[in-house]
Design a protein around this nucleic acid. Structure first.
Length: 596
RNA sequence: GACCCCGUAGCUCAAUUGGGAGAGCAACGGACUUCUAAUCCGUAGGUUGCAGGUUCGAUUCCUGCCGGGGUCGCCA
């Protein structure tokens, strides 16, 4: 399937014959190049091993290499690169295979993992804000990417539904009355509800006492208290669901798994750690000391499992969570789509879980993958922190509303759709209002998601309406527009997308060739993004694809092609491009409008 | 103070695990007048924060600085 594959194989064979002692750990990967169709750098590392000049080694390989059936040219370039130029029939055969492939050339995972992806994680009775955007959008993209290559995926939305604040929240609910509270919560102003409770708590001694008593009742399993707590959770869940629907992510109520779900396991975590002699008492708390972690005084830093007052904290429930995911769900890979500031906490959790033998992580450092040996027996599980930076305003500080508060996610999304709507109304007035509203949602929401995904997740990024909604540059609208243009061509041609696929593709024009080469890189782009849990790499690929398509569109008339054969060939290229764009955007959780 | 992350063109960002530094805006210079819809081509812009080290080769790896952000036991 991979165009370079056959060349790489033959080069490896030649190298093995010429330099039998130098085998192993050689970089024989074929990479895209702007000076050739592909580039292979094996001669450089090899030269080092055999003590010869890289260019001479490269030349030596070429002399022994016979790839005349697939390449028109193989030459030594630069310090010793092998620059490949593929024969057109080789490319068109590969394109045909990709076009016939339901998976568009994307390989399925050789050893499918059972992946648990932990993302979004809003708090009950609290508004979702921009802080939840990244986790939700990145997590959702990873869900889709993993599913796309055949991994089994469990989404887990680890909502904050437990802890001391629930004392005051429940008492506030009691004060408002259940009907009143439900009304308050259903309008989506969760922040208001929380703040009112907070104010009362801070201002009233008697309310504080009620709240504390309520926490005790909650933890003690008092039926009425649990019922009231359940109301708060249910109302919040309903609200989250509306946000997720608007955002177009796959999370549903079935994916909710609050901290409270792990309550029954907490005592067991303590027991198990105790049985392993990992637990020590320090300053009245039960803790685990982990090698390599120190506090500000350079003393060993403990992970607190049980507080001085006997209560548990989030470290305990995170450990319970690991046990649950590995032992009950059977996870082999756990992705934590959580902000970068949690890095230390998560690595301590991982260290303790490892020490306790709850993970049995393999020594192998390589990402999950397609070449991983099949697991045998009880699969070892790996934890990966998919960390991300913050969303910044134009002042390069954490994005805040004008009032200086966290920006509500729902308001951000509504504004995105409004802006997209206005933009379309101006650019394509012929679109019906209904159609426009539909498309505005795809574009507005897509723009927000793409702006988030297109940046390297570990870095902070600057939130900028104009840039993300622009039709130029690395944006969702640009990719969506390329897709819509293709659909437009087919509408005008009166040809079905399916029927276009049978055509014989020819690559006479440079822009056809450039487009074709890039289409053939889809598989490696998807895997590259997946192996690093970095959706932005897929974005970069899709942007380059759209760019090459636009150049093709500009220089290669489709409907007015000089012959039917060329027209059909170009239609086939258009169809395949649209499919890859749409499939790639799907993995990012972004829709592909047929017109806009 | 210790540790973690970041630093690339005026701005916003890429760079496929160590391989020939790129894109979009903005700037400048041309072409096009709509057939397929909201154009295309070109120019300029860089000591990749600084200084060393490893290497045939470093934006990438190592060490030390500078600058920005973050974390560092009883919230989650």
């Amino acid at each position: 399937m991979n165009v370079s594959g056959v060349v790489v194989e033959r080069i490896n064979a030649v190298v093995a014959r010429l330099y039998p002692d130098a085998v192993g750990d050689l970089d024989s990967a074929a990479r895209p190049s702007d000076r050739a169709d592909a580039q292979i750098n094996i001669a450089l590392g090899l030269a080092n091993k055999v003590g010869k000049k890289p260019r001479d080694v490269a030349q030596h390989i070429i002399e022994q290499l016979d790839v005349r059936d697939v390449c028109t040219k193989v030459e030594v370039a630069g310090p010793g690169f092998l620059n490949l130029t593929f024969a057109d029939p080789h490319l068109t055969a590969a394109l045909g295979a990709v076009s016939r492939d339901q998976s568009l050339g994307v390989q399925q995972a050789a050893s499918p993992q059972h992946v648990v992806i932990d993302y979004s994680a809003p708090n009950v009775a609290k508004e979702m804000h921009v802080g939840h955007l990244r986790s939700t959008v990145i997590g959702d993209a990873l869900v889709r990417m993993c599913e796309r290559v055949g991994h089994r995926v469990d989404r887990e939305n680890h909502i904050g539904d437990w802890g001391t604040p629930f004392g005051m929240l429940i008492e506030h609910l009691v004060d408002l009355g259940e009907v009143g509270a439900a009304r308050e919560l259903s309008v989506g102003d969760l922040d208001g509800f929380y703040k009112q409770a907070r104010e009362k708590f801070d201002g009233s001694e008697s309310f504080q006492q009620r709240a504390r008593a309520r926490v005790v009742a909650l933890q003690g399993g008092d039926a009425e208290t649990l019922r009231l707590w359940g109301l708060l959770v249910a109302e919040s869940a309903r609200y989250f669901a509306t946000v997720y629907e608007k955002l177009g992510v796959k999370l549903t109520n079935d994916d909710l798994r609050g901290e409270s779900a792990y309550n029954p396991l907490l005592a067991e975590v303590v027991e198990r750690l105790k049985a392993l002699s990992l637990l020590t008492v320090d300053d009245g708390a039960e803790v685990v000391f982990v090698d390599g972690f120190t506090n500000r005084d350079n003393e060993p830093l403990p992970l607190i499992i049980r507080k001085k007052d006997g209560g548990y904290n989030y470290a305990t429930s995170d450990l319970a969570c690991v046990i649950d995911r590995v032992e009950r769900i059977g996870a082999t890979l756990m992705l934590y789509v959580v902000g970068a500031p949690q890095a230390q906490h998560l690595s301590m959790i991982e260290a303790v879980a490892t020490k306790a033998g709850w993970l049995n992580p393999p020594a192998r450092k390589a990402p999950p993958a397609r070449k991983a040996p099949p697991a045998h027996g009880a699969s070892p599980a790996r934890m990966v922190h998919v960390a991300f930076g913050s969303v910044l305003g134009s002042d390069r500080k954490m994005l805040k509303s004008r009032a200086g508060e966290a920006v509500k996610l729902i308001e951000l999304l509504d504004e995105a759709v409004e802006r997209a709507d206005a933009s379309i109304a101006q650019k394509n007035p012929e679109l019906s209002v209904d159609e426009r509203r539909k498309v505005a949602r795809m574009i507005g929401i897509g723009a927000v998601k793409y702006a988030d995904l297109a940046n390297d997740r570990i870095k902070d990024y600057v939130f900028d309406w104009e840039r993300m909604l622009s039709f130029d540059g690395n944006t969702a609208p640009y990719l969506q527009y390329a897709h819509a243009r293709i659909c437009s061509i087919f509408r005008r041609a009166g040809v079905s997308r399916e029927s276009a696929r049978a055509a014989q593709i020819t690559l006479a024009h440079a822009n056809e060739r450039s487009l074709a080469l890039w289409l053939l890189n889809y598989d490696s782009a998807v895997w590259d993004a997946l192996e690093r849990y970095s959706p932005h790499r897929l974005c970069t690929y899709l942007y380059e694809l759209a760019t090459r398509y636009t150049a093709f569109y500009e220089h290669c008339p489709v409907l007015k092609a000089e012959s039917d054969a060329i027209r059909d060939s170009r239609l086939a290229l258009c169809d395949l491009t649209a499919r890859v764009l749409s499939d790639g955007l799907m993995m990012l959780g972004i829709e592909s409008p047929e017109q806009m």
